[in-house]
Design a protein around this nucleic acid. Structure first.
Lengths: 245, 245
DNA sequence: CGTACCTTTGAAGATCCTCAAATAGGGTGG
DNA sequence: CCACCCTATTTGAGGATCTTCAAAGGTACG
C-alpha cells in the first residue's frame, strides 16, 4: 500500500476505487531526483502538484544575503501544495534531502477527484488543513520554544509523521537529516544544534547516529518538547465518511 | 463593497451574482465580540467558518506554562480556515484585538459555492494558498530575521494586506496592536519590541503613535525588513477567469 | 586510501531576555 | 472638566542564550 493511501486512510477509509485512482496517479509521470537538488524553484510558474513517492525533501526560502530557512519537510506520501497551479509563481523552493522520486499530478487529476471521488477530495482537504496546522506549529516552535524544546519538538513531529506513513518502528526511524539541515529548520546555528543534540543525548532522550534515530522514551521526549500531537489530527476524524467496501 | 469582495477581486473579477452571493452570506449570522475576547478556543469542535467583517483578530497558540504565540492576524475580509469543520477539534484559538464583527459561514454555504460559483471557489483557493504562504513567511521571519528586520517585515505585511482590503492610505493605516501583541507575534520580549520600534523610528522608517501607523518611506522599510511581496500573490493572478459582466 | 563532508570542541562576543521601576496615555466617573 | 486608575510605553542594568569564528576529529564514499 502506498504511503499516501496509508496516510489518508488515517483520516478516512477509502474504497477500492479510491485506492485504485490514487495508485494509478502515483504510477504515471514519475521523476527521480538526486540528493540536494531542486525539484522546483522560487519564481517559477508552478505546473503540477508533486506527490512524494520516496525519499525526504523540504520546502525552503532564501534571503538575498544567503540566509536560508527550511519551512517544512516532505516525507513519502506528502503532497506539495494542492492547487498550487492557480498561482502565477512559486514563492518558495522545493529541494531534496535524499534521493527522491515524485509523481507529478496534473490539473486534470484534481478535476477528476472533485467530480467523482468525494472521499479523496475530503481527505485532500484534511491534508491541506493538517499542513497548515503544521506550519502554525512551526511558527510557535520558532517563536516560543528554547533550543532544546524546539529540537525535541521537531523530532517528535517527524517521528509521528513517519509513523503515519508506515515508515517508523515503535522506537526508531531512518533519519537522513544533517545537523546543518536541522539548523536551517530550527533557526539555530549549526554549532548550537550540535550542542542541543548532545544535551538530548545526555538526557537519554535520543540516540542519533548514522542516519538512524532511536527514541527510547517517546513520552519523555514529547514533554521535553512540549509536544501535543493534536495539531496533526491523526485519529480518523473523517470516520463518518468511511467507504463501506 | 465589502472588504472580502475587494480582496478577492484582487485575484479575479467577480460577476454581479458572485458578489451578491458573498454579500448575502456576509449579512447573515452576524456576531460581534468585545476586544480581547475569544471567538473560538483550542479543543473546541469547529462548527462554522468565520468571516471577519470588521476589526482585527488573531490566531494564537499557548503552551501549558503560559507562553503564547500569535501565529497570524485576521483583518477585515479575512476568512478563518476554509473547511475547518471537517476537523474534530481546533488546534489553536482565535481571539479579538479590537471590537470585531464576524459572519459565520455554514457548511451549506460552501456546498453552494462549489456547486454553482466556480470563480468564488477558485478565489477561495487563492485565499487558502496565500494564507499558507503567509504562514511560511512567518516561519522564515522568526527563524532567520533579526529583531528589527522581523518587525519591519511584519509592519510591511500588515500594511500591504490592509491596502488590499481597502483599509490603508498611501502612507498610513490604523494600527490597533499593542507592543505586547507585537511581542507575541514576533517571538520577542515586550522590552525588546519597544527598543526595536525606537530603532525604526530613529531611522525615520515608521511613525507609530496612538493606534496610527505612518510609513513615510515604504521602500526603505521593505528593504529594512527584506520584504518581498511575492508571497502575497497580489497581482490579479486569476485574470483568465474574470467574469465578463 | 584520500577527499569531502559532517560532527565536535573551544573561546569570545552579540543579541535578546528578565527584572524592576518610572513615565505617559486613555478612558471613566464624579 | 478634572481627577483617578488602569493599561501601555519607556528606561536601566545585569545576565542567559545563542552566534560566530576557527580548527580538530570522524565518517562515508569513490
Amino acid at each position: 500500500m502506498s504511503h499516501l493511501v496509508r496516510k489518508l486512510e488515517n483520516f478516512v477509509r477509502l474504497s477500492a476505487a479510491d485506492r485504485l485512482m490514487l495508485n494509478r496517479a502515483a504510477a504515471q509521470r514519475v521523476r527521480t531526483f538526486a540528493p540536494r537538488t531542486d525539484i522546483a524553484r522560487e519564481g517559477e510558474k508552478p505546473k503540477d502538484v508533486h506527490l512524494i513517492l520516496n525519499g525526504w525533501a523540504c520546502r525552503y526560502k532564501q534571503l538575498e544575503d544567503g540566509r536560508r530557512q527550511i519551512v517544512s519537510f516532505f516525507l513519502p506520501g506528502d503532497i506539495c501544495d494542492l492547487n498550487i497551479f492557480i498561482l502565477r509563481e512559486m514563492d518558495h523552493s522545493i529541494g531534496t534531502i535524499t534521493p527522491v522520486s515524485i509523481a507529478d499530478l496534473p490539473r486534470e487529476f484534481f478535476d477528476e477527484i472533485s467530480a467523482g471521488y468525494p472521499r479523496i477530495a475530503t481527505a485532500f482537504w484534511w491534508e491541506t488543513l493538517v499542513n497548515a496546522a503544521i506550519q502554525r506549529e512551526w511558527t510557535m516552535n520558532l517563536g516560543q520554544r528554547t533550543a532544546s524544546e524546539r529540537m525535541a519538538h521537531l523530532l517528535c513531529e517527524l517521528f509521528f509523521r513517519l509513523r503515519l506513513a508506515g515508515l517508523a518502528d515503535d522506537h526508531s526511524c531512518s533519519f537522513p537529516l544533517t545537523q546543518a539541515d536541522l539548523a536551517e529548520a530550527t533557526g539555530l546555528s549549526k554549532v548550537h544544534v550540535n550542542r542541543t543534540l548532545q544535551e538530548l543525548r545526555a538526557s537519554n532522550l535520543i540516540v542519533l547516529k548514522g542516519k538512524m534515530l532511536v527514541l527510547p522514551d517517546l513520552d519523555r521526549l514529547m514533554s521535553a518538547g512540549l509536544f501535543n500531537a493534536n495539531y496533526l489530527h491523526l485519529d480518523r476524524e473523517g470516520r463518518q465518511l468511511d467507504s463501506n467496501e
